[in-house]
Write a protein that binds this DNA or RNA. Sequence first.
DNA 1: CTTTCATATGAATATCTATTCATATTATAT
DNA 2: ATATAATATGAATAGATATTCATATGAAAG
Lengths: 100, 100
Amino acid sequence: MELNEQITEKLSTFFKIFGDYTRLRMLNLLSEKASCVGEIAENLGMEQSAISHQLKVLKNHDLVRTKQEGKQIYYMLSDDHIMKIFKTGLEHIEEEMDEK
Amino acid sequence: MELNEQITEKLSTFFKIFGDYTRLRMLNLLSEKASCVGEIAENLGMEQSAISHQLKVLKNHDLVRTKQEGKQIYYMLSDDHIMKIFKTGLEHIEEEMDEK
DNA sequence: CTTTCATATGAATATCTATTCATATTATAT
DNA sequence: ATATAATATGAATAGATATTCATATGAAAG
């Protein structure tokens, strides 16, 4: 594959997002249903602020989008491509575990 | 998807590996041909030591394997699953770029 | 066995990043 | 207008990690 600097840079940034335990759990949650910050925080047993910061990261990189309803802001996956990445990674992990 | 703690942990660790510019460049190089430390270092314009440290990371996580020939140690991708991950990420990046 | 070349390693450092704490913003309801 | 609830934000901190430097290990050749 012929990859230029810019693409490689973007690609590593992209994978970096998935390379965090908390963010993966958040994405997994959001793949099941749109949720607002407080819900996610409670569900994961983490502080609202920590989740909010991470949601910002996810949003900045267009992995999630939002829908405001009154005071609440619902977060959801921006498209189902996200889950494809997720699954491809999973396949690898599972294959690896089978081998041992 | 029903993901337990252990799987999610493994998954985030796995993605973390891809989430680094230098490692991505190394993997990309290795996808074209097996190379030894010195070659990679020269090709990327980095220190031998830095590359060696990163190769260790890649090896510890079974992304690469080695074949010794005399003094030289050739590194290569451990399987072509690695490139599949690579490509899935690329697809996402490219789609994203098209949108804008 | 000593020299040379390729690679690995350990410690030190500098950068990055996830989380916390305190506080600000924003939207609704009273 | 003020109180309340949901969320966002900025600064501080602690922990992780990529790179460098100096040195060690290992293999082959002389």
